[in-house]
Computed example of a mutant assay.
Amino acid sequence: MKEYTRSQLALRNGSDREEIWCAYKGIIYDVKKSRLWRNGKHYEHWAGQDLTDELNDAPHNENVFDKFEVVGRLVN
């Protein structure tokens, strides 16, 4: 699996590139096909970030990531 740093993930925020990626528990997902992530925003959340700590505040559980393509692993 390809590895990406936090800086590389931050570039995939939907503003400068077509890529809209988010990380959860060390796995990076491509969320651009979701209408809820248009322009890299999802309510008060932004793409290009690790959302692991923010999921507790979401109205859904981690299974939401099952429908998205895995693009890589987040490394430090």
Rank of each mutant, 00 (worst) to 15 (best):
M1K: 14
M1S: 15
K2T: 15
K2W: 13
E3A: 05
Y4A: 02
Y4M: 11
R6P: 00
R6F: 13
S7R: 02
S7I: 00
S7W: 00
S7C: 00
L9I: 07
L9V: 06
L9H: 06
A10S: 02
A10N: 01
L11K: 15
L11T: 09
R12I: 11
N13D: 15
G14N: 10
G14V: 06
S15A: 01
S15N: 06
S15M: 05
S15K: 12
D16H: 07
D16T: 05
R17G: 08
E18R: 04
E18V: 00
E18M: 00
E19N: 14
E19F: 11
I20L: 14
I20H: 14
I20G: 11
W21S: 02
W21R: 03
W21E: 00
W21C: 01
W21M: 01
W21D: 01
C22Q: 06
C22E: 04
A23M: 03
A23F: 04
A23E: 06
A23N: 08
K25S: 00
G26N: 08
G26H: 07
I27P: 03
I28F: 01
I28G: 03
Y29H: 09
D30Q: 15
D30F: 15
V31C: 04
V31N: 07
V31Q: 00
K32A: 08
K33A: 13
K33C: 09
K33S: 15
S34Q: 05
S34K: 07
R35T: 08
R35W: 09
R35Y: 13
R35D: 09
L36W: 02
W37N: 15
R38G: 03
R38A: 10
N39K: 10
G40E: 04
G40L: 06
G40Y: 04
K41M: 10
H42F: 01
Y43G: 03
Y43L: 12
E44N: 14
E44P: 13
H45A: 02
W46L: 12
W46V: 06
W46N: 11
W46C: 07
W46E: 09
W46Y: 10
W46T: 09
A47N: 11
A47G: 15
A47E: 04
A47M: 14
A47Y: 10
G48A: 10
Q49T: 07
Q49P: 03
D50M: 05
T52W: 03
T52H: 03
D53R: 06
D53K: 12
N56D: 15
P59M: 10
H60Q: 07
H60Y: 13
N61G: 11
N61T: 07
E62T: 11
E62P: 11
N63D: 14
V64D: 11
V64F: 12
V64L: 15
V64K: 12
D66A: 12
D66C: 08
K67R: 13
F68D: 02
F68T: 02
F68G: 01
V70I: 15
V71S: 09
G72Q: 06
G72C: 07
R73V: 11
R73W: 00
L74D: 13
L74N: 13
V75N: 14
N76I: 05
N76K: 13
N76F: 05
N76G: 13
